[in-house]
Design a protein around this nucleic acid. Sequence first.
DNA 1: CGACTGCTTGAAGAAATTCAATTTACGTGG
DNA 2: CCACGTAAATTGAATTTCTTCAAGCAGTCG
Lengths: 229, 229
Amino acid sequence: MLVRTTAAPAQCSNAFDDFRLTNGENPIGRLNEFAYKRGTEIYGEGEPAVYVYRVKEGAVRSYKLLSDGRRQIGEFHLVGDIFGLTSGEYHRFTTEAVVDTTLWLIERQSVETRARTEGPVARNLLSMTARDLKHAEDHLLLLGRKDALEKVATFLIEMDKRLSATGVMSLPMARSDIADYLGLTVETVSRALSRLGRAGIVSVAGNQCLRREITILDRLKLLSLDLQD
Amino acid sequence: MLVRTTAAPAQCSNAFDDFRLTNGENPIGRLNEFAYKRGTEIYGEGEPAVYVYRVKEGAVRSYKLLSDGRRQIGEFHLVGDIFGLTSGEYHRFTTEAVVDTTLWLIERQSVETRARTEGPVARNLLSMTARDLKHAEDHLLLLGRKDALEKVATFLIEMDKRLSATGVMSLPMARSDIADYLGLTVETVSRALSRLGRAGIVSVAGNQCLRREITILDRLKLLSLDLQD
DNA sequence: CGACTGCTTGAAGAAATTCAATTTACGTGG
DNA sequence: CCACGTAAATTGAATTTCTTCAAGCAGTCG
């Protein structure tokens, strides 16, 4: 039997539930829990999609590679997020644990099956796909048209929304992950963060080697860098 | 009564039909045809989504703007394509006719209604959203990690697939549209095309003012620039 | 302890943008 | 019908932004 041990964040409190795949009398598909060490691959691009995942604890990066190794991270999956959904037989991204991560798994097959007969499940599949689409669309604008400082500002605001209730966010990912998410290099990300720090807009703390404690000091100025469309 | 006057391209021959919204005994929602002059807005970002559209003739660009006017085109909709679908009340893009364009329209409401009760309609909605998602995901990699020449090469290959059966493609869009699709400037796109021309990989023809007849001369070389992931 | 990773910063270089000029077509109106 | 203004595209030169290369520092882990 599955017992939820962590309170999931409000914005996606019951996504597997909405899915009708965890609660109620009829949980179809075995619901497994699985732990991944930091850096471990969860699935690879092109592999058959067997499971759908939800993050119990930790963080996941989802990326594509060019043949020469250039990497583009499409999304980070944080606690509560569901990922691995794909209408199609195969995964279109590779995913890895950013830190030690625990996931819940359900069989994709069972989702498909239930979606075929149950309207609410089908609607949820659609709304989750639509949410991913919206994220990707916004990210297109960022990658195509924002400069380095704007990209980093947008990133910080996104992460602030998604992982800090307290006002201090503790980024799970390295600068290289941020860089590959924003279409920049590590150095450029670092320089942008330094500039934001010098300008008194954010404070970057942590030891010299893992400076991932970020506080937004001047939200208005940060928002003014995160241009609206 | 609707009479289809143009043969739609094979790859999306009956998308509205798949949708169960044009054929059969029960076409729900009036199916209107509407003509847009080149440059005309079809709908704006943030507006309520009233219709779903299919391109009968012409081409459409779908874009977002930053507050200072920088533009990112997310997608071009060519003959046969369906667009304007959004699970959500509002459009997330502005769309405009790239050239004089005729569209078929159906009421979004009627699609939603039928999707609620008919499995096949719901599944089609999902698969179309998933197709858009896949396109956006691939475009993220292009925008974030490809250089100018690779971007243009990828663009030409995409357009070649989508609009030329003959081997010569006649681009409906201006260089500025291509630039805003690829996250470049007009000049950079022009220079990339010139380089591809000088290298004998493509030929760019047309009068000096509308050089939009493009022939791929060396498909292998072009593909080698369009790196796989 | 020593190799390694993560991060920052500086200097040099490359790629793309910006600015500017030119060409050619198109459309509008005198 | 032709002149004029405008739009689309290309090309060159200057500039900017970002990347690449290089070095250094501080933690971590075996």
